[in-house]
Design a binder for these strands. Structure first.
Lengths: 220, 220
DNA sequence: CGCTCTATTGAGTGGGGTCAAATAAGGTGG
DNA sequence: CCACCTTATTTGACCCCACTCAATAGAGCG
């Protein structure tokens, strides 16, 4: 019998089978599932049969080169929808950053519908993700290490709606693989931003933005 | 009276007013316009009232940081559609790489339609562009200079359907701004790829891929 | 308290950037 | 068609930001 499973588990656990009470943006009907920290949600090369909405926790989505270099494409936070692909095969792997609860819906429930409004919702979703990806391209292509870290913090603060006190759901390694840097460089950039009074690092998952506006200005 | 204008002109010139005879992918109804090399097609911050399909020539789409650093998000080649935005404002500027002919359609003709199949076409278009952008992220985040240039050449060859003889529609500066490098590094990478027998540079706009498969392998 | 995992800091290196000069490729006007 | 001018590309010399390798310091957990 499915239960709401917030406990650490080795395999994904169905949590409830009711559709979400309120659908914010896109109406998803599916099953909520729990994933333990680090667990794979869906893998590169698999058939893309489901789409996901983050209820609690956080997710990283990434691709790897054959020699092991990893690039994180995006992090997904509560409210975000991910996993909508064009063709049948997934191009990215998604993993839970922390213990995470997802709403899992059949892809067919979304895509095969001859429903104009729904298709437009999907389109909006795709365009919004495209814009995020293009911001990412700008950051990776033309910003220095500390600018990348600054823009990352600003973006995360906006998305979490957390104001000036950020609790990072991801490790330094994840940030590095998102920003195209190494963990050492991420760490040094944080130290440097702290030195110029932009932020205050209080434990490795806690960051206070002392001057959010100035931080945003760093990214132009 | 609008004419088919292939001549160099200072301002965009309407070419014909008939809809395209055959629509490949998305049925666009609009006006064909000619743009001289270097001319702006639409600018960052403007209202996004039109969408564009490349008939002849090529287009670069880019964003700039306040200090002048430029990041090219994508190049658009004959057959490609671009300029579909979510909100009202454009986030990127588009310019003609060479003398270019575009089919220009009103955005409203696409978006306001309550047409399921059309909305799905739009969605496919957006997802396809998203996938290209995510490939770009992987390249910028985790590949070395010569790997970037190699993957760029392979991708361009695929898209142009040109086989092993590539005619580049863009300058070294454009390539550099697309790949997050400098022109000097692009040039050195090309020289290096030539030195190991991968390509043959014959004039700055002509590149022959001697070993296309090996070149693709460089990008893993 | 000790073990393990993660993050920070330090020292040294190298890939790609900067600056500058040489070369090649286009245009333009005579 | 050629000489001249302008712009784009290549090459060289040198430097610096970010990477690598290594050691230290915290954090989390049993």
């Amino acid at each position: 019998m499915p239960i709401l499973a917030a406990t650490r588990s080795s395999y994904p656990v169905p949590a409830t089978e009711r559709p979400t009470p309120q659908a914010d943006d896109v109406r998803l009907i599916g099953v909520t599932m729990s994933y333990a920290r680090g667990r794979e949600i869906c893998g590169q090369g698999e058939r893309a049969n489901h789409v996901y909405k983050v209820i609690r926790g956080a997710v990283r989505s990434f691709r790897m080169l054959s020699d092991g270099r990893r690039q994180i494409c995006d992090f997904y936070l509560p409210g975000d929808i991910f996993g909508i692909e064009l063709g049948g095969e997934r191009r990215e792997t998604a993993e839970a950053l922390a213990d995470t609860v997802l709403l899992v819906a059949r892809r067919s429930a979304l895509i095969d519908e001859e429903d104009g409004p729904m298709a437009r919702q999907l389109w909006r979703l795709a365009v919004a993700e495209l814009q995020r990806s293009q911001d990412h391209v700008l950051t990776l292509g033309r910003r220095s290490a500390s600018e990348r870290v600054a823009s990352f913090l600003v973006d995360l603060s906006d998305r979490l709606g957390a104001g000036e006190d950020l609790e990072l759901p991801m490790s330094r390694q994840d940030i590095a693989d998102y920003l195209g840097l190494t963990i050492e460089t991420v760490s040094r950039s944080l130290t440097q931003l702290q030195a110029i009074g932009m932020i205050k690092v209080g434990g490795c998952r806690l960051i206070h933005l002392c001057r959010p506006a100035a931080l945003a200005d760093l990214c132009e």
